[in-house]
């Protein structure tokens, strides 16, 4: 998998088509939800409403949007965890460094 391209922002932004809503991670850790019809609401990532005309939103999209940051080296799908078959650990060097503690090596 190649690296992601240049970012417009480090904050996550997803569109939830089924509900016609856009979820945007905010600097303060909350999530802003905007409906296609213009209604807006702000929420904690655990689903609690903070402010705005929109008072309810899918909790799991809030979790997904507002989750703690993921280590950039670890943004792989589970079906394609990077390997390096030439290294004794089996991990690419960069990941071996990042995961050292977790892998107990």
């Amino acid at each position: 998998m190649s690296e992601p391209g240049p970012r417009k922002s480090h904050l996550r932004k997803y569109r939830y088509v089924a509900f016609r809503q856009t979820f945007e991670q905010q600097e303060d850790g909350t999530v802003l939800v905007t409906c296609d019809d213009g209604r807006v609401g702000r929420f904690h990532t655990d689903g609690r409403y903070i402010e705005g005309e929109l008072t309810q939103a899918n909790k799991h999209m809030l979790i997904w949007t507002g989750a703690p940051p993921q280590k950039p080296e670890c943004r792989y799908r589970w079906g394609e965890v990077p390997v390096d078959i030439s290294r004794p650990s089996g991990w690419p060097e960069q990941l071996e460094v990042v995961l050292h503690y977790h892998l107990g090596r």
Binding site: R12, R15, V17, R75
Partner: peptide, 24 residues
């Protein structure tokens, strides 16, 4: 329920590229 509107959306979702970044 679908959160993909286009095939590119589906690919971006698969690798979790969100809309504030460009998928490679």
């Amino acid at each position: 329920t679908s959160t993909a509107e286009t095939p590119q959306d589906a690919v971006d979702m698969y690798w979790d590229y969100h809309r504030n970044e460009d998928s490679p």
